[in-house]
Design a protein around this nucleic acid. Structure first.
Lengths: 329, 329
DNA sequence: GTGAAAGCGCTAACAG
DNA sequence: CTGTTAGCGCTTTCAC
C-alpha cells in the first residue's frame, strides 16, 4: 500500500509550487508553456492522478451527480427512459449514476444514496412519503409516476384523465364500439385500482368498463398480455378494441391475437401505454399512449434543476400522455 | 447564496465537538444515545447535509465509481449489457455512471471522465490505442469488443473462431447445406472485414462463404437485416441457413422472411449474434451466438477490479460466445 | 463517552 | 508568470 502521488510530489520534483502544478494540470492560464510542459512530463512520469474529492472540495463549482433508480434496467420501459434522461442530464452537465432496487430495500438504498449523490430520481414503488423523505436526509428526491404531497418532495406524474378521454373519443370515431381493458397485478397481491384505471373508466361507457381482465402475472410483461388477451376474448367475445396498460402487455396481446387468427386492427384494435420505441417494430406497429420521450425527461431534469438550485418549492408536475398513432388501432 | 451548513455549525449549536457530530451522523460507536439523538435533531433542524467530497477526502476507504461508455443506450444490446454490468458492479460496491459518446468526441469525453471517475469501461470505436491511453491520463481503461495491445490498456474481447466453428458444425448436423451471411456497415464507409467475418469464413465452406450481403444501413438495425435478407435470398436463393451478425439484424431478417412467406426454421434456418433477451420473444424465438450474460459482465468487472487494485498487468481477456439454441435454427 | 489536533489533496485569492 | 497563504468540510488518530 504505497502512498498516493500528490500534487506536492510533483511540485517538489518539478521544482515549482503546488499552485503551478494545478495551473498546468487544469489547463489554466498564467503559466508559461515551458513550465507547463515540464510539470506535465513530471506528473506523467510519476503517475500522478489528481484526487477528484480533493479537487471538488476545494473548487467552487462542484460536480453534480444524480441517481436514477428503478426496479430493473432489463425492462425496456426503464431502459428507454434511462436513455432519454441521460440526454437531459448530460446536456445540463450532470453526471448520472444508475441504481436498481431489485435486491436492496428501497429505503436503505435511498439512505445510502443520500450521502453519494446530489439528487435522487426514480420510480420508488409504494413506499410511504414520510419514510422516503426522511431517508433522503435533505437530498432532493423526485418521485416518478406518482404524485408527491408531502413537504419537500418533488414528483413528475401522469395525467391519464384527458389522455384516455381523447383516446376513447378518437377510437370511437374510428369505429370502436366495445372496449376491453388489460391490466396486470403482481402475483399474490390484492388488486388496487390504479389512477389510470380510474381515468379509463371515466373515459369509456359503463358497459365497456366491465370488460376488464386483471391478469395475475409479472406486471408489465408480454406473458401477462398474452394470457390476459385470451381471457378477455373468451369472456367478452364482442370486444373490438383492447387497451393494455403497458406496451409490453400490448405486445403479448398482439402475439395472442396472431395465434388466435384475430386480425389487428381489422377485427380488434389494440392500444398500449408507454410509447416504447420497440412498439414501432411489431407488425402491426403498436399504437400507444406515449409517456416516454423528450418532454418527460425534460420535465424531470427541470424539476431536478430547480431542486438543486434550492429555489422553487416542491414541485408536483403532471404530464398528459400523447396518443401515438401507429398501425394497431 | 448562503453559506453551506457545516459540521462546525452543528457542533456549535449542539454544544459538542465536530468529532461527536461525525460519530452521530455516521452511526459510529462510542457515543451516548442521548447526545446522538440531540445532534441528529440539531442537524435536521439546521438542514445539514454532509459533503461527500470532504468526507471521501478524509475517509480512508473512498467511494469507487466507474464510467460505462457506449454509443447509445437506445440500442438494446447496450442497454441489456448495462443491466448485466450494473449487477456486477453494484455487487462489488461500486457506483456506475453512464455516458454516451453520441455527441461528444470520444477522446474529449475520456479526458473529462479521467477526472471524474475511477475507471472507464466501454465500447470505444476505432480510436487509436495510444490516443485513448493518453486521454485516460492514468485512469484504468477497459476496452470492450476489441483487443488492447498497448501497454496499460485492458480489454475484454470475443473469440468468434471456436464459436463459429461449433455453430457451423452443429448447424450442418441439423441439415444446413448452404450458409448465407448478413452483415452491415455504416453508410458511406469502406467495408473492412471484421474479426467475426474472418472467423465465419474459416468456419463455413468456400462456396457458402460467397453468399454474403453487406448491407449499407445503420449497423445493428432491423432495417439492415430486412433489406439484407431480401437481397441475400434474391441473389442466393439456394441458401438454407442465414447467420446475421447481430440479433437486431436477425430480427429484421425474420420479419422479411415472414413477408416473403419463407418459413423459419423450416425453409431457412436463422441465427443471430448477441444473445439479446429480446430474441426470446420473437416467433420463432431467435437462436443466437450469445455474448451478453453474466460471464461477460463478470469478466469485465473482474478486469476493472484488478486494474483498480493496481495489481495485475494489463489484461486482454477473450470470451467465447456460446450458442443459445432457441427456435429459429 | 468526548474532545483536540493533525491531516486528507487540492484550489482561490492575493501578492509579488 | 509564479509563489504564498488560507481555507474547502470532514475523519482520523490519540489523549482525556
Amino acid at each position: 500500500m504505497q502512498r498516493r502521488v500528490t500534487i506536492e510530489d510533483i511540485a517538489r520534483e518539478a521544482g515549482v509550487s503546488r499552485q503551478t502544478v494545478t495551473r498546468a494540470m487544469n489547463g489554466m492560464p498564467r503559466i508559461s508553456e515551458a513550465t507547463r510542459a515540464r510539470v506535465l512530463e513530471v506528473s506523467e512520469r510519476l503517475g500522478y492522478r489528481p484526487s477528484r474529492f480533493a479537487s471538488n472540495l476545494a473548487r467552487s463549482t462542484k460536480t453534480k451527480t444524480i441517481a436514477f433508480v428503478v426496479d430493473s434496467f432489463r425492462n425496456p420501459y426503464y431502459s428507454e427512459l434511462t436513455a432519454d434522461l441521460l440526454d437531459a442530464t448530460s446536456a445540463r452537465g450532470w453526471q448520472m449514476s444508475i441504481f436498481s432496487h431489485e435486491d436492496e430495500p428501497e429505503l436503505q438504498l435511498i439512505g445510502r444514496l443520500a450521502s453519494q449523490v446530489d439528487a435522487v430520481v426514480g420510480y420508488l414503488g409504494e413506499t410511504d412519503e414520510a419514510a422516503l423523505g426522511s431517508a433522503a436526509r435533505g437530498v432532493p428526491l423526485v418521485l416518478l409516476g406518482r404524485t408527491a404531497t408531502a413537504e419537500g418532495l418533488h414528483s413528475v406524474d401522469f395525467d391519464f384523465g384527458p389522455a384516455f378521454a381523447r383516446l376513447a373519443a378518437e377510437l370511437r370515431e374510428r369505429g370502436a364500439k366495445r372496449f376491453g381493458l388489460l391490466e396486470s397485478q403482481p402475483l399474490g397481491t390484492i388488486y388496487k385500482p390504479s389512477s389510470r384505471r380510474i381515468a379509463y373508466e371515466d373515459a369509456v361507457d359503463a358497459h365497456s368498463a366491465e370488460a376488464v381482465v386483471v391478469c395475475e402475472a409479472p406486471p408489465q410483461s408480454m406473458d401477462a398480455g398474452q394470457l390476459g388477451f385470451n381471457e378477455l376474448m373468451d369472456r367478452f367475445p364482442e370486444t373490438d378494441t383492447v387497451i393494455a396498460f403497458s406496451d409490453l402487455m400490448a405486445m403479448g396481446a398482439l402475439r395472442a391475437a396472431h395465434r388466435r387468427g384475430i386480425d389487428v386492427p381489422g377485427q380488434v384494435r389494440l392500444v398500449g401505454v408507454d410509447g416504447l420505441s420497440l412498439g414501432a417494430v411489431t407488425s402491426p406497429a403498436l399504437t400507444t399512449l406515449a409517456i416516454l420521450g423528450t418532454e418527460f425527461a425534460e420535465q424531470v431534469a427541470d424539476v431536478v434543476a430547480k431542486a438543486l438550485s434550492g429555489q422553487g418549492d416542491a414541485a408536483a408536475r403532471r404530464i398528459v400522455p400523447s396518443i401515438l398513432w401507429r398501425e394497431s388501432a
